[in-house]
Simulated scan of single mutants.
Amino acid sequence: MRIAKEAGVKHIYNGLGMVVGQGAESFKLSTGKEMPVDYIKEIVAKA
């Protein structure tokens, strides 16, 4: 990501949204409940 920024790439994605989305679907399949996606994104972003 650092190299992309240095090269002037304007939009850089780290894949966090995709990982959380996949986790949310897995959670729903396993538990039948909705995962608190926004809360999980906050926690993962701090890690």
Rank of each mutant, 00 (worst) to 15 (best):
N14Q: 00
Y13M: 03
K41D: 00
G32N: 02
Q22C: 05
A4M: 08
M35N: 05
L16S: 13
K46A: 10
V37G: 04
V9C: 01
L29T: 13
T31G: 03
R2Y: 14
P36R: 14
R2E: 15
V20K: 09
A24R: 14
S26A: 10
E25G: 00
A24I: 12
V20N: 10
I43Q: 04
V44E: 11
I3D: 11
K28Y: 13
V19A: 05
A7M: 11
L16V: 14
K10L: 12
G17R: 04
E34G: 00
Y39Q: 10
V9N: 03
F27N: 01
E25Y: 07
A47M: 15
P36E: 06
H11S: 06
V37Q: 11
H11T: 02
S30G: 08
M18L: 14
I43S: 02
G32F: 07
T31L: 12
G8D: 00
M18I: 12
R2V: 15
V19G: 00
T31N: 05
K41Q: 03
G8Q: 01
K33F: 05
G8I: 00
K10N: 12
A24T: 11
I3W: 15
I43N: 07
A24Q: 15
G21E: 03
P36W: 13
K5W: 06
Y13H: 11
Y13K: 08
G8E: 01
Y13Q: 03
A7L: 14
H11Q: 06
V19H: 10
V20R: 15
V37K: 09
V9Y: 01
S26Y: 12
I43Y: 14
K5E: 13
H11V: 12
V44N: 07
G21K: 05
K28C: 09
R2N: 07
E34F: 02
I12P: 01
A24V: 13
N14M: 01
L29A: 05
E34R: 00
A4L: 13
E25Q: 02
I43G: 02
I40Q: 11
A7D: 11
K10H: 03
Y13N: 02
A7S: 11
M18C: 01
P36I: 15
M18S: 08
N14H: 02
D38P: 00
A47V: 15
T31P: 12
H11R: 08
A45E: 14
H11I: 04
